[in-house]
Every structure is written in structure tokens, then in C-alpha cells.
């Protein structure tokens, strides 16, 4: 990749790779009393897959809407693809692709009609529309279904088509708001395959939000958001390394004795959780041999697990992302019902 880029005559290449695709400074948004976003700062590098992770109501959609000119910020600035989102709205719009949390396809039109309409609306050269359309639809595996009305598509197909549509005009930045919400695990997985393929095949920056922890792992870097502020920002591996401790679960013949021995010999406080002795320690795998040697209580099984992003979220906010979701569950049910009824009526 870097070789072919070096060989090609590249005088017109727009920006050096170090130029960030998105720069956000002190961005704020209030809806009356509700302070949805309370001053966030971050930069997204060109070519990166950048994720926003946080529970429902954290302010992810509001942030994305401000970056893509749909909502006017109450304070702060945001630059996308080198253009200010307030003063150069049209320039931003020409350079971004969008996939919203709710579907925005026209169910009465065919897949092809939806994409053509989009290309025309963006003024894509008509000589290239056919080739580009074929390319993006093949990428998401929908080329064979191009003549079907979109209302006959499943939720996953619609989402894939929306990703294809968002790419029709070769945007420099693609925004995806909860691209996998309401989809089954297998479809979620395939959507992620498309996003990773995309990153490799097109020179594009991807900014996406999710409240599924496991998905955030796919991003190059993530920002963890809670109640309108970014509480942590780094690569998933680095964030987990910050938490440090791995989690070790052991099954023993005598749990009480094991807990006492752990405290006495290693100064580790362990608890019984879900029927096994559980404790946290940095570099857990390296600790396991010492555990067998020195514990003095027969061990039947050991499992070592790395910190998850939920542990990261918990270490920064004091509560688990699932707990936050549960407490806001009425809100969440509402969203799910919208998704479902929207799908049913189409």
C-alpha cells in the first residue's frame, strides 16, 4: 500500500496523513435544561476507525449530529475534513457519509433507486454512478437484490444498504450511529466485517458509536462517554492495560482455606463470586504457576480473564455500563420499540 502510493504521481494528494479528519474542541450542546454534551475534546486521525462507547443517553448521537452539521452546537468548535461544521456546513456535507441510528431509506423505492437518488442529490458525475453503485453494493453483498423494494429487506440488509448509500459519494469521513443496534449477533458481526473491509479498501475515516462493549474492541481507538463527557480515550488495548489487573477465578477443594491462604501468602483479598474464588491481579497468567506452588490448597481449575471494556468503564465511572443501561431501561425499551415498529410498518 505505502509502496504503490509512493510510486503514484501524487501532487494532488490533499492532506498529509497526520492531518486529523475530525478536530473537536470544547463541544457542548444543551436542550433546554438537559446538558446532553458538556464540553468534549478529541481528534480523529485520517484513516482511523474511531469509536464512541457509552450507555444510552450518554450524548453520543448528539455529538455525532453536531459533527455532521445536523445539530448546531451550543458551544465549542468542530472541524470535519478540514471544514468548520457551523461556518462551512456545505463543505462538511460534501465530504461526509452518514448512517443514522434509525433507518432513513425510502422503503417504496428499490435499493438501486435509493442509491441513484442519493448520488444525484450529491451531484455525483453520472458517468461514474453505475460503476460506483455496483462497487458499494457488492461490498455489502446486495448487488443481486438491487431491484427489490427496500421495504422487503430485513433489518440487517437495510443497514448494509445504508452503509453502501453512505459511501456512494466517496466521502472522506463516514459517520455511523449505532450501526448494529437491534441486529442479531451474526448480522452485527458481518456489519463489522464490512466496516473493516472498508477501512482497508477505501481511504476513509470512520467515526462510529455503539453501546455494545464487545464491538468497541474493533475500533482503532475509542472514547468512552458518560453523561455528556469523555471519561477515557485510547486504543482498546491501552485502556484495558490502564485498568491493569486481570481477573482470576479458581475452583478449589476448600474455598475458605484458599481465601485465607491468598490473604496470608500473597496479601490478596479474594471473594467468592458465582461459586468460585475470584480476585484481581496484574499479569495474571504469570501469577498462575506461583499460585499452584504456594497456595497449599488443591486447585481443580483456574481461569484468567483480561480486563474488559466494561471494567474500564467501571473504573472511570464507578458503575458498570450494563447497570447504567438497566437503570435507564425504560428509555431503552422505547428505542427498541421505535426500531421494531418502524420495521413492521414499512
Amino acid at each position: 500500500m505505502s509502496r504503490s502510493a509512493a510510486e503514484a504521481p501524487e501532487q494532488h494528494r490533499a492532506a498529509p496523513a497526520s492531518n486529523p479528519a475530525i478536530v473537536v474542541r470544547g463541544l457542548e450542546k444543551s436542550f433546554g435544561e438537559v446538558r446532553a454534551v458538556r464540553g468534549v475534546d478529541f481528534e480523529v486521525e485520517t484513516g482511523e476507525v474511531f469509536g464512541f462507547l457509552g450507555p444510552n443517553g450518554a450524548g453520543k448521537t448528539t455529538t455525532i449530529n453536531m459533527c455532521c452539521t445536523l445539530t448546531t452546537p451550543s458551544g465549542g468548535t468542530a472541524t470535519v475534513a478540514g471544514h468548520d461544521v457551523v461556518r462551512e456546513r456545505d463543505d462538511v456535507r460534501r465530504n461526509i457519509g452518514l448512517v443514522f441510528q434509525e433507518t432513513t431509506l425510502d422503503g417504496y423505492l428499490t435499493a438501486e433507486q435509493n442509491l441513484r437518488l442519493h448520488a444525484e442529490l450529491y451531484g455525483v458525475q453520472s458517468s461514474l454512478v453505475q460503476a460506483r453503485m455496483r462497487q458499494v453494493m457488492e461490498m455489502v453483498g446486495l448487488w443481486e437484490r438491487k431491484d427489490s423494494p427496500v421495504r422487503t429487506f430485513s433489518g440487517g440488509m437495510k443497514r448494509r444498504l445504508e452503509i453502501a448509500r453512505g459511501l456512494m459519494h466517496s466521502p472522506r469521513v463516514l459517520f455511523l450511529d449505532e450501526p448494529t443496534i437491534g441486529l442479531d449477533p451474526q448480522t452485527r458481526r458481518s456489519i463489522w466485517d464490512y466496516i473493516r473491509t472498508l477501512k482497508e479498501s477505501e481511504e476513509i475515516t470512520i467515526f462510529m458509536t455503539t453501546h455494545y462493549m464487545d464491538e468497541a474492541e474493533w475500533c482503532d481507538r475509542i472514547a468512552i462517554m458518560d453523561q455528556g463527557v469523555i471519561v477515557a480515550l485510547d486504543s482498546p488495548a491501552a485502556l484495558k492495560a490502564q485498568v491493569g489487573a486481570d481477573r482470576i477465578r479458581i475452583e478449589t477443594d476448600d474455598d475458605e482455606a484458599a481465601i485465607a491462604a491468598l490473604l496470608e501468602r500473597f496479601e490478596i483479598e479474594a471473594v467468592i463470586s458465582e461459586g468460585a474464588v475470584t480476585f484481581r491481579i496484574p499479569s495474571g497468567e504469570a501469577f498462575v504457576p506461583r499460585l499452584f506452588e504456594q497456595l497449599g490448597v488443591p486447585i481443580r481449575s483456574v481461569s484468567v480473564s483480561r480486563p474488559t471494556l466494561d471494567d474500564v468503564f467501571m473504573s472511570h465511572t464507578g458503575s458498570s455500563i450494563r447497570d447504567v443501561e438497566e437503570s435507564g431501561s425504560s428509555d431503552r425499551n422505547k428505542i427498541m420499540m421505535q426500531v421494531m415498529s418502524g420495521g413492521g410498518r414499512r
Binding site: 500500500m1 504503490s4 502510493a5 503514484a8 456545505d90 460534501r94 465530504n95 448520488a119 450529491y122 451531484g123 455525483v124 458525475q125 461514474l128 454512478v129 460503476a131 460506483r132 455496483r134 462497487q135 457488492e138 461490498m139 453483498g141 448487488w143 456512494m168 459519494h169 466517496s170 473491509t197 482497508e200 479498501s201 477505501e202
Partner: peptide, 25 residues
């Protein structure tokens, strides 16, 4: 630009990226 076979061969897609351009308003 030429692309690696791994990403280009999906579903027999053409092996080049068709890059389009959105004109000024």
C-alpha cells in the same frame, strides 16, 4: 488504485476503487 486480492475479490467485484467527487454547490 490497485487493491490487494483479499479485499478486491469479494463477490467478483472490479479490482479498482471507483472514486467519485461531490462538486461545490
Amino acid at each position: 488504485e490497485p487493491r490487494s486480492a483479499a479485499t478486491a475479490d469479494r463477490g467478483g467485484a472490479p479490482s479498482e476503487i471507483v472514486r467519485v467527487h461531490v462538486p461545490q454547490r
